[in-house]
Design a protein around this nucleic acid. Structure first.
Ligand SMILES: [Mn+2]
Ligand SMILES: [Mn+2]
Ligand SMILES: [Zn+2]
Ligand SMILES: [Zn+2]
Lengths: 143, 143
DNA sequence: AATCGAAAATCAACTGAGTTGCAAGTATAA
DNA sequence: TTATACTTGCAACTCAGTTGATTTTCGATT
């Protein structure tokens, strides 16, 4: 999924030092087929090296503010993260209400809704998030 | 906002006993111009009577599962609640990234996107949430 | 009116993702 | 090499929400 991005170059461009943990975070998210929770990323890094959770949380937060990652709020309390580089434009997400698994959906054009969604005169809309909830195909055939 | 609903009748129809706290929750949400956090609802009930937070959380959870309220996940950690009766169909929400305030927007037709948003064949989409982020008109004129 | 069982409210203790402040370590610059 | 800034680690904390056990209230039955 992220095999198109050169992460060390990406970090350099953002004026961020290349460190083992930072690269691991990007590698893992780049290889993931879906958005991941901080705890999942932490666990995956720990299969390679020892790391403190605070370090990972701080990196995720920093990268999000730099626009390198997107933080997805799909359910209460836990955030999910995904790459935000040019090869991964914003897109809607699907969450199964049974297995809670998250899927990335293809981008849909929202341009026609944009004006309507600005709401009361004077609001400035910067971003539109679309979240689909339902039953995924795996859970459908089980139940 | 909720002056159209007869709450005592609504509770009766759901086979739920009418109690002071339950009615207060519905009254408050019915009068609110926007979705409220549990802590806000709790505080507002406490201007009238003494009540434990667990009671309020349990009522909000119960009402949500009965489909009497909608729980909105708009930012991490805190949920917002709004009435889900027939006078208040699902609709998009706007959140200002500066003051964090939430506004309800008019419903928009999503029917054209529905098929696209089902995603991989076999998924069943039940619900589409639209969330707009930006700068509200109040915060715009300040900054 | 007194009794009883179910539903509702309370209390204290807990959960867990995420945060904070500060100390220790490591890389870059002078 | 030494000074400096940046990065990581550790421990303690926060806070919305949850849990389980106990007490209170309600509505029915006798
Ligand atoms: Mn995605
Ligand atoms: Mn609303
Ligand atoms: Zn599923
Ligand atoms: Zn605002």
């Amino acid at each position: 999924m992220g095999d198109l991005c050169d992460f060390s170059q990406l970090l350099a461009r953002h004026g961020v030092r290349l460190t083992a943990v930072r690269l691991a975070v990007l590698d893992i998210l780049g290889a993931a087929p879906r958005a991941l929770r901080a705890a999942e990323i932490l666990e995956m890094i720990r299969t390679r090296r020892q790391v403190n959770k605070v370090t990972v949380y701080r990196i995720l937060d920093d990268f999000t503010h730099r626009g390198l990652l997107r933080r997805l709020i799909l359910e209460g309390r836990v955030s999910h993260y995904e790459l935000a580089c040019e090869h991964h434009p914003p897109h809607p997400h699907f969450q199964c209400h049974l297995c809670r698994e998250i899927q990335c959906l293809e981008p849909v054009p929202l341009i026609r809704m944009w004006t309507e969604l600005q709401g009361p005169v004077g609001n400035r809309a910067d971003q539109i998030d679309v979240r689909v909830k339902g039953l995924c195909h795996k859970c459908r055939e089980i139940s």
